[in-house]
Nucleic acid binder design. Sequence first.
DNA 1: TAGATCCTAATTTTT
DNA 2: TTAGGATCTA
Length: 824
Amino acid sequence: MANISAILEGLNSEQQDAVSCLDGPVLIVAGAGSGKTRVLTSRIAYLLEKGGDPGRVMALTFTKKAATEMKERIAAMVGERKARRLYMGTFHSIFIRFLREYAQDLGYPSSFTIYDQSDSVSAVKACIKELNLDDKVYKPKEVQGRISMAKNNLVTPDAYRANADVMMKDLHAKRPRLHEIYALYCTKCKQAGVMDFDDILLNMNILLARFPQHCLEIAGRFDHILVDEYQDTNYAQYIILRRLTRNEKTNPKGHDNICVVGDDSQSIYAFRGAKIENILNFKRDYPGCKVFRLERNYRSTQNIVNAANSLIAKNEGRIPKKCYAVGEEGEKLHLIRAYTESEEALLIVSKIIARMQEERAQYQDFAILYRTNSQSRALEEALRKRNLPYRIYSGNAFFDRAEVKDMMAYFKLAVNVNDDESFKRIVNKPARGIGGTTMTALEAAARSFGTSLFKAVYHDGLEAFGLKNAAVEHLKAFCTMIDAVAQRVKSDPADVLARRLADQSALLASFKSDTSIEGQARAANVEELLNSVAVFVEDRREEIREEMLADENVTEVSDEDLPVVTLDVFLEDISLLSNVDLSEDEEKDASNKITLMTVHSAKGLEFPYVFVAGMEENLFPSGGMMLGPAELEEERRLFYVAITRAKKTVDLSYAQTRMRNGKHESNAPSRFLREIDAQYVANPLRRREEEDEDDDAPAFGGFGGYGYRTKAKPVGSSPWGASGEARTERRPASVMPVRPTAAPSARPMAAPSARPLPPKEENFVPDSPDKFRAGQTITHDRFGRGKILEINGATVLESKARIVFEKYGEKILLLKYAKMRIED
DNA sequence: TAGATCCTAATTTTT
DNA sequence: TTAGGATCTA
């Protein structure tokens, strides 16, 4: 059949093998840039061409974006009609379908709603309060994290309490009653008819485990299961997959047509419970599995691939694979050295400008990646200074806005009146005379009645809890307003109800009446949200219309024939959405701009020119967690991800000093910079000794002299040298190398190369960069007097001066940025 | 009940 | 530094 060969055509032989081997377990190890998505989509298309029933194919991804993209690509190959019938979506959205079907069995209403993470944290917080625990000890976010981890590992509250290990850990952390919070939190969620993200996986497991007949029924609906980014699955997801495929205990007659695609080298979500073991052990878990390796990188130059390989080779326990590039050798990686984060940013920006000119590149070809979001500040500043357009990806900024969350809380409450978190959020927004006292009393009442806050309002006997009549009237007025909308959730279109909530709650009006700029912005945001509901309704209707036109022999679908798109549908869509590309606007906005984002969010993307900023110890690799071997390996994989985003060039920058949390911090260049084989780096770090010698040049009497550090510490007084202060603070005692502090026998660890910058001289008037010549005596705004030894570089803007300073020794400064004046 | 002020904590985050 | 939350005060 010509069509079949068309799908395989244009694939390399490994890809073809991976696509065409349809039966039995298949592991596709897909290196970065190896055409993973193409293989996955081709495989599904091929499956359908071979007569597979699209309705019996389950394809799971982690993001909605990935699912949508793949669906589109498959549709292009096999046609809309078939593509639509695929069970393709995120783990969460697909599982929610089953959970709604069987919700009753699990003790949830089938209309359960979803708590996002912030709902979840505040619900946990409420539980902590209810148990009279100290939220300084039981930090809501940490407790929520722990609960989340427990759920991801299928540890229910009962199992939690029964697990000696876990309980011991809590005891050591001085949080022995954490399990009580967990239990209470679960009770409350259930009572509110709410599942958090982790519940979706946990409850899916409970459904499959506790109801074998449902398990068989669900598993029986599918002939093939495909999973994307398998390296990032957690335990709960792993077990679900096991239950849905052939399994001696629970599903001996099932199929084992499971195909997982992933790259162990790109597993970067262990901190959230992802288990890299899942992919490492796939062969063991699914006997008879076939493994295909996609090792040919179509994205990056040879230098980039080789550099990345040399880095990742430092990790142990990998699936052996030899990634290689076939394109150009390309430029070597570049290191950018800076004194401060602002200089780092400026250097990056000028390099971008230079590259744009040299290579006729566009803004959108550039990405600046970093480990932590807070690093974006300095970069933004530099970009603004040079008037370069940029776009920052940072979570869902829009849905994180307080006013948007408020409006969303109205939606949520209307869809599920028992959602206490939403209730609390908006009951007095705008002010309705329902204050803290009233709410405390109502909460006590609800607790004692065993109902939600909403129901408690209509309960008899509220006086006993100290609720005055006036307060109850206020509450009832609020609830009546919500209830009126709630009654119509299933019958009225989402956009109509959304608008009605905005009006009747007076939330929109309250923002509009605030004439400040912020107030107007808030009103505009709420309007935008309402608008997006309308757009969603319209889109969904069109989708359904097309579906109807495609599926049946229908020639025409009138508006009346279309089902109503309701608010709960909108809500579910939104709550399972993260990095929202909200509308076409947003897309336009992204066009031709420099991209700034964390390395995490860059996964799956590619850019011609990539900059990775902040390549310093304690930052990348991060020093925030206890840096055990496993964590270090994850950081290394993260860096691997960063490098492999690049098609043409990689620039890695680091600063000697950086302002972090309001303090100057000095950190040595990242160890990762040394781990890349030096042959792939144009200007590699010199050996450590040389770095240190160079930088240490004339001694400078400690920090005291700088005047902005109170604690003077003699250089080398601790094994961590001059910046020991900062280091010892951040480094947990348990991972401190055991070394006697002042033992002269211990090899003195040379002072780390970086140290805080001396303060700038006030009102310094620098001479212009073209004035400087070798041999001149100059004064620098920070380093004081010095002599220029040499200047080199093609143009003034690029030239660097080697200068020996009286106090600080030899330094190489970029003339463009060095603020200096000529003496004599 | 709202606004002002004080205090504290501070990765990464596909759902 | 700075943002967010909690607490204090009018």
